[in-house]
């Protein structure tokens, strides 16, 4: 579950005031809104990359408002994937697991499981420069899911893909979210994507988030 209550944030002229919303456990939330309305900022607040002035961020039943990003149980896929430029795909996926000191065999098994599920097993020894846009996004997704986060935050993960790849990746995204049992919050401009993926549809406008009618 993701719950945001009364969050206030300000950076120069930009601000979010009293933002509240929730996405139930295991649900797929889609957040829509105009460019520059603060969707990415909101994801970064949930991740812990930006500090709020007031309000509460809950992940599962835990208040993570004051927690550093790595202790929030959140997996984050930024808009461009933000893959680690010098690391092979295998190392990217294993990164969070090595930090948690998983045994090598367990790391290998988890990397294999995610690589199979996201159809990137043939890419494990490549570096990001050798990946297409769709492949890069699937690797970023596997990396975010590796440590079994409770929540997955996706910032326009399909926007840079061509139509065919976008369709395929959207299906894969939904299947993976269900298989991993993770609560997702997905930012997009696309009504089509929202209709395809959303269990919960949220609309961001003038620094506020409200529930929107199903697409």
């Amino acid at each position: 579950m993701i719950r945001v209550e009364g969050v206030r944030y300000r950076a120069g002229r930009f601000g979010l005031d009293d933002v509240s919303f929730a996405v139930g456990a295991g649900s797929y939330g889609v957040l829509m809104g105009a460019t520059g309305c603060g969707k990415t900022t909101l994801l970064e607040i949930i991740c812990g990359l930006r500090e709020v002035e007031a309000g509460v961020v809950m992940v599962g039943e835990q208040d993570v408002t004051g927690e550093p990003p790595g202790r929030r149980g959140v997996g984050y896929v930024p808009q461009d994937g933000a893959l680690f430029p010098a690391m092979r795909v295998r190392e990217q996926i294993a990164f969070a697991l090595r930090l948690r000191r998983w045994a090598s065999a367990d790391i290998e098994a988890r990397v294999g499981e995610l690589a199979g599920q996201l159809q990137i097993a043939h890419l494990l020894d490549r570096k990001p420069a050798g990946l297409s846009g769709g492949e890069g996004q699937r690797v970023a997704l596997a990396r975010a899911l590796a440590a079994r986060p409770a929540v997955l935050l996706l910032d326009e993960p399909l926007s840079a893909l061509d139509d065919t790849t976008r369709e395929q990746t959207a299906v894969l995204l939904k299947e993976t979210q269900r298989a991993q049992g993770v609560t997702a919050l997905h930012v997009t401009h696309s009504l089509r994507e929202a209709g395809q993926l959303a269990d919960v549809l949220l609309q961001m406008e003038a620094g506020q988030v409200r529930s929107a009618a199903p697409v």
């Binding site: 812990g48 933000a82 969070a96 590796a146």
Partner: peptide
């Protein structure tokens, strides 16, 4: 930033 969210 992503590395921070992964626990680094």
């Amino acid at each position: 930033d992503v590395a921070l969210t992964l626990g680094a």
